[in-house]
Amino acid sequence: MRFLSAFLLCTLMLINCVGAGELLNEAPNDTRLKIIASQLRCPVCQGESLFDSHAALAKEMKLIIREKIANGVSDQDILDFFQQRYGNYVLMRPAFNSTYALLWIAPFAFMFLAIIIFIIKWRSHSQTPLPADHQQQSPEQQQNSPN
């Protein structure tokens, strides 16, 4: 139910005299918590970040992060704290170390390889002689061909 009727809206406007509430903003510690918790993985969830997770363990871990933020611990130290205890598994972003080397290098290596092969093969094929009869088409016919 996301949209109420206009009538209900009017009624509610009439009784909209809830006292002057505060105009709130996200607390700065919460912002830091958001950033850090988004970089950690919930150990008991199926691939959720700590920030998104509602699991009990995740809540406790977020409380720990909150306490550490209040104590002035740096972001990296907080991440290291959890990595020491739960291993690489708990980091959302694979680090640039030996465990993940293949992961980062492979896609780009493959892309470069493919492009190099493309260039080599294409260049060799453009030396191939033409078939004898080859009809010309006007540019418009070319453009408007079925793709």
Binding site: P43, V44, L57, E60, M61, L63, I64, R85
Partner: peptide, 13 residues
């Protein structure tokens, strides 16, 4: 009670 020691050891279940 809070599970802090568990987190220290990497307990997840």
């Amino acid at each position: 009670p809070r599970g802090r020691t568990g987190i220290d050891y990497g307990v997840y279940g």
